[in-house]
Structure formats: structure tokens, C-alpha cells
Design a protein around this nucleic acid. Structure first.
Ligand SMILES: [Zn+2]
Ligand SMILES: [Zn+2]
Ligand SMILES: [Zn+2]
Ligand SMILES: [Zn+2]
Lengths: 165, 165
DNA sequence: ACGAATATGTTATACTATAACTATCTTTGG
DNA sequence: CCAAAGATAGTTATAGTATAACATATTCGT
């Protein structure tokens, strides 16, 4: 099914990129937000893989593509825009950024992060969301945003890997 | 009950500090780890409140207490030790550190963080842990560590605050 | 075209964390 | 007790992440 997690599976990644860029274009148009060439370029760089990308890695690649030198604020402002539009998520433990595969509906930032290959997969578990919401409510806490970063080994990098053992 | 969350409630905080320092002393002794004066001093600084404390805030306070200037590695090495011993947790979204109230049993880092007052409360919900573990397993992912950072408003800072309305 | 608002460029700086080397302290075996 | 080995702490320098402040350029509605 096409809603299955992709990051840890073999897949045609060019579809991820084009889907993400198309969705971003549509959403920004709907919202009256301006997905400028620079912002789109940064989004595309982030989507080049399923590995969270640091701001300065983005900067280096921008600089390599551009003729003029690129300064940090250029990157951070684009990242701020993409974060505001929920087109990307920030992985706090890595100081890095990754594309959101479902930017059309707002949701918490829940990720599985492979310590070995570095890939990240966003998870959307009702059970996880509900249990977190419930735990917060019981503490009298009003949730505004949440970030879950689960580190470990993805199926490909697990020792008991079954996919070609 | 004495296992109830404290950070967001009125409580005698000196007990938090003494309990934490006592527990740390006991655990380090059991483990053959050396809770040196410097490390204990850093732990006590972190426990001065339930607000996550940044490394350079710790540094400034250390410097204020000491006669000699204090350099970053001094602080970061103490933090590394305390993290290894699970006496503190790191809050990735804030680049800050907070004391663990239950260092005797290993557990994931799950926090409620108030956007208004800055206080953090560690939560220990079986339901949250289980649902996360389940979601990871279903993705074929082997969990090694996890960090949950829930931002919002604590009971004291919520508009519909009932505690003295 | 005009002014307001938004976006980008530019320079400097703040904040967070680690590398590499030296010195001191602690433990342990002789 | 002493010396060697290992762990802890001091010191200096630098790497990595992010923002402030101000100038310029572009876009949008009128
Ligand atoms: Zn892909
Ligand atoms: Zn997402
Ligand atoms: Zn307390
Ligand atoms: Zn804890």
C-alpha cells in the first residue's frame, strides 16, 4: 500500500521527491504562502534522501549550486519558512531537518532514527499520539506540540535482518 | 503519594535536591563510578530548579562559585558523566539538561515542558512506552533509546487554571 | 507607478560543543 | 611506601549551530 513506511524499504525515491514538491506547491498556493525558488531548492535538498540534513550541509550544497556565496541566514530563513508550513520537521537530537511526507495534515513529529544508516522514518501511530495526549491530560498539561525521537536500528541494519539472511 | 509528579505542584524542593544527591551518591558507589565534588556540584546546580539548564548557564554559576575561571570542557565532561550514569537527561529541543528523579531504573526520556514557566516534568507512562515500542516493532525497528518532548502549558500556566480560579 | 509588505543579501556575533594537549589526582601492584 | 597506570580536571583553541541587525531587492495591492 502506498501509505506504508518507505524510508527503510527499497523504493523509487524520485517519487518521494516529486510528491513532496508537488504537495508543497499545492499547499502553499492554498495557503497564500510563497514557496519561492530558494525555499523550493532547500526543500528539494532536504528531500534528496531520508536522512536528516544539517543546516550547514544544506548551506554547502546551496553554495555549490550557486554562483554567489551563501550565508547562514539564507538557509535558516528558508528552514523557518518550511517549518512554519510544516513541510519539514526538525530532529532536535541531531540538529537536523527532514522532509514531512504528509504535510497536508498537521501532526506531531514522531520519528524512528537509525543509528547505523542514519535514515529516519516518520511514524503516525494513533496509539502513540493518544497515549501521549492521555498522559499529558492526566498531568493537567495542555499539549501544543510534541517531538518523539526513537533511536535504534532499522530493519536493514538490524543484526537479525531477515530481508536477505 | 510520593511518586506523584512534583515539578508542576507546590512542594518542598529541598527534598528533591537532597533526594537526588543521595540517590546519586548511592548509585555511583554501587556502580564503582566516581561522583567527584565537581560532578556533584554540577548535579546540584542542575537540581536547583525543575527548569532544564543550559551548559553555559551551569558554567556561569560554576565560575561564580569558584575562584578560578571555568572552561566549557569542565562542564561538558561533568554532563557526560551524569548522562552516562543516567542521573540527568538532555532536552534536545532546548539544548539543556535536567535532573532525573528516578535514576535507579533505566528508562526513556519523556518530558512535559511548559512553554510559559519553563518547568519540565518527567513522565513515566507504561502506556506511552508500550505504544512506542509497539509502533517501532511493527516497523521492524529495534529501539535503543528514545526521547519524547511534549511542549505546551502546565497546569499552573493554563488559562483555564483550576487551582485557584 | 507608488508605497507597503515580504523576501533576500550581508556582516557580525552569539550560543553550543568538542579536540588536543597538559597537569593533577587516585588506584593498584610491587 | 613508591612507581606505574588510569582516571579526572585544567587549558587553549577551534568546530558546529543559530540569530541579530541592517541594507537591498522583489512582490503585491492600489
Ligand atoms: Zn524516498
Ligand atoms: Zn510529518
Ligand atoms: Zn522540586
Ligand atoms: Zn529520568
Amino acid at each position: 500500500m502506498d501509505t506504508a513506511p518507505l524510508a527503510f524499504s527499497r523504493h523509487n525515491h524520485s517519487h518521494c521527491v516529486s510528491d513532496a514538491l508537488d504537495a508543497a506547491t499545492t499547499l502553499c498556493t492554498e495557503r497564500g504562502a510563497r514557496l519561492t525558488p530558494l525555499r523550493k531548492q532547500v526543500l528539494e535538498l532536504i528531500w534528496q534522501s531520508h536522512k536528516p540534513l544539517g543546516a550547514y550541509a544544506i548551506l554547502d550544497q546551496l553554495a555549490a549550486q550557486a554562483t554567489k556565496p551563501v550565508a547562514p541566514p539564507t538557509v535558516y530563513r528558508a528552514l523557518d519558512f518550511l517549518l512554519e508550513q510544516k513541510l519539514i520537521h526538525r530532529i532536535g537530537a541531531l540538529n537536523a531537518y527532514i522532509g514531512c511526507p504528509h504535510p497536508d495534515h498537521h501532526h506531531a513529529s514522531h520519528f524512528l532514527l537509525c543509528d547505523d544508516c542514519g535514515r529516519a522514518e516518520e511514524i503516525h501511530s494513533k496509539s502513540v499520539s493518544r497515549s501521549i495526549q492521555k498522559a499529558a491530560s492526566e498531568a493537567g498539561f495542555t499539549v501544543q506540540s510534541q517531538s518523539l525521537e526513537v533511536f535504534g536500528l532499522c530493519p536493514d541494519c538490524s543484526p537479525q535482518d531477515k530481508h536477505d539472511a
